[in-house]
Amino acid sequence: MPAAATVTDLSSKRKEPVYELTGVGKTYARNAVTALEGVTLTLTKGSFSSVIGSSGCGKSTLLKIMSGLIPPSSGRVILQNKPVRGPRRDIGMMFQQATLFPWRTTVENIVLPIEIRDGKAAAAKAREKATQLLEIVGLKGFENVYPNELSGGMAQRAAICRMLITEPAVLLLDEPFSALDELSREFMNMELQRICMEREATAFLVTHSIPEAVILSDVVYVMKPRPGRIAEVVEIDLPRPRTLDMITTPKFGALVERIRSRLDKEAFL
């Protein structure tokens, strides 16, 4: 695929690679489903990539393998020059549900990763940082509130703080805002962009929304189902920072169309 080759060349020239996947495949032993086959991709430092594809094409499986939650059946996953073999400190993950624990206050939820890795004392020290993070995402004053008093969007913002507290080098996001309404979702996407740019974090986002993928990403991977594989790599060369009014530009429309046509074709193949 020539398109893929050019993109990887371009970006790797620009920046050093952070994530390197080579020929990653996954067959679930339980039902002999081949969820992934031959996925090769490279994420460069500070880049934002999205993966888009129909339901069940293996996006979550890919993310779980990248994060070390499950092992691949074949292929290699290398993060910052070290192979991924289980969960790692330099990975931050976010899921569709915020999953805040109701018996912990917001700030206690946010320092939970620190508490698990380095103990209670370290967690107590991290509270200050958690408070700063809460301020960044607009949740100042909600430190000592229990999660059942937070709205869906607020809970998801707290989940972002929990992901960021360990200062991970890469962020793996599995449809993090799909449970939110359209307006909060757009707002959160812009927040996400700002946070990633500020920290030079490498982000990898699973989404079902083409405009969301286009507005956030430098590269969009279009996946094909059965077995899950990358069908096309689309580079998004819109300028940064992205703004919501870019959505109305013809260039944005063209990119969305290109990805959509590719997805539509897959649906009938």
């Binding site: 994060s67 969960p87 790692r88 400190r89 899921f95 999953t99 939970l112 698990i116």
Partner: peptide, 8 residues
């Protein structure tokens, strides 16, 4: 899953 990713 969350606890697993945190390496608990």
């Amino acid at each position: 899953m969350l606890f697993k990713t945190m390496g608990a």
